[in-house]
């Protein structure tokens, strides 16, 4: 009896698992899928948030591509990618290998992990709070940085760091490097432990200096982690909101505005919901496109390696 009904019973057993997807699925539909579809639909409308919704087709998008503020916000996104992806990855690689190769091996693992924890510290603080800390340090009058510059005789460089259009973006970028740096350091140090030490020993015997070993062994060996760091940090850089809200509110002018804050302004300050929805939709498309490019690139480089 039991043997004849096996295929049907296997099928039934499989079907029985659907029920476990029900709570998560319903919530996912209500919180992600439906709002996402609604947002895309809203991007084709003109709506101040109350009253009549009027369908205007692609007008928001044509307006968007002619809007200087929109292009400024995406230029600043590129700056955020430099500050949150490029700089932390390069500096993190250098710091991690210095910590692993020199400190870990010559001064003991304890000193290496202590230094690593210190570099990681800004990562655990809520970004909004980190923004408050830095906004406070960069205050124009009596701020800690200006006071420090005066104390060491560089008083002429003291300025209104976040209020001046020329220094606001570089200041925010420097802050984001500070926020972000700990993440690649931790990931890369874990990655370095994976690298077979015999590779380094063999190269050393062959007379390869530290930099050549770093380039020829370390970097290719930890490529998977570098991809993960670059992808996750790029997505984070495209989404950055909290530090901008707390530090500059996108100002002065649009000097530090980013797409997420630009969308927020249109949703909740200018009551131009359709326009905000269009910005958010474009931002989403760019993030998805970047992710696909990254994943393709990673797959291609893995294939090349295997060959």
């Amino acid at each position: 009896m039991a043997t004849t009904s096996t295929p049907a019973r296997v099928d039934a057993r499989r079907r029985g698992y659907w029920i476990y997807l029900l709570p998560g699925g319903v919530l996912f539909l209500a919180v992600i899928v439906i709002p996402f579809v609604m947002n895309v639909a809203l991007s084709f409308t003109e709506w101040p948030g109350v009253g009549e919704i009027s369908w205007i087709g692609l007008e928001n998008y044509t307006e968007l591509f002619a809007d200087d503020a929109f292009w400024a916000s995406f230029r600043n996104s590129v700056a955020m990618i430099v500050a949150m992806v490029v700089a932390p990855t390069l500096i993190g690689l250098l710091l991690a290998s210095a910590l692993f190769d020199v400190i870990g091996k010559r001064f003991g693992g304890k000193s290496a992990s202590t230094l690593r924890a210190l570099f990681y510290l800004p990562q655990i603080v809520p970004v909004a709070v980190a923004g408050i800390v830095w906004g406070w340090i960069l205050r124009p009058e009596n701020g800690a940085l200006n006071t420090l510059l005066e104390a060491v005789g560089l008083g002429e460089f003291a300025q209104n760091w976040l209020g001046d259009p020329g220094t606001a973006l570089p200041s925010v970028m420097a802050i984001m490097v500070w926020v972000q740096i700990g993440y690649p350091v931790v990931i890369f140090m874990a990655a370095l432990q994976r690298v077979d030490p015999q590779l380094h020993e063999a190269a050393e015997i062959d007379g390869a200096g530290w930099f050549r070993r770093f380039r020829a062994i370390t970097i290719p060996q930890i490529r998977p982690e570098t991809f993960v760091v670059a992808l996750t940090c790029t997505i984070a850089a495209m989404k950055v909101f909290g530090p901008i809200f707390v530090l500059t509110r996108g100002g002065p002018g649009d000097a530090t505005n980013v797409p997420s804050y630009f969308a927020y302004q249109n949703f909740f300050e200018r009551a131009d919901v359709g326009y905000g929805a269009a910005i958010a939709t474009v931002l989403t498309l760019i993030i998805i496109a970047l992710s696909i490019v990254f994943i393709r690139f990673q797959a291609a480089s893995e294939r090349k390696e295997r060959r």
Binding site: R14, G16, V31, I32, M38, K239, V273, A277, I279, I287
Partner: peptide
Amino acid sequence: GRVKGRLAIVVLFLMANMLPQEVLIYP
């Protein structure tokens, strides 16, 4: 349970991870 279409569902969850919250916030 390896329910049917699990790969598509997992990809959907992964995509949801990448979405900026701005694209959900107003709705």
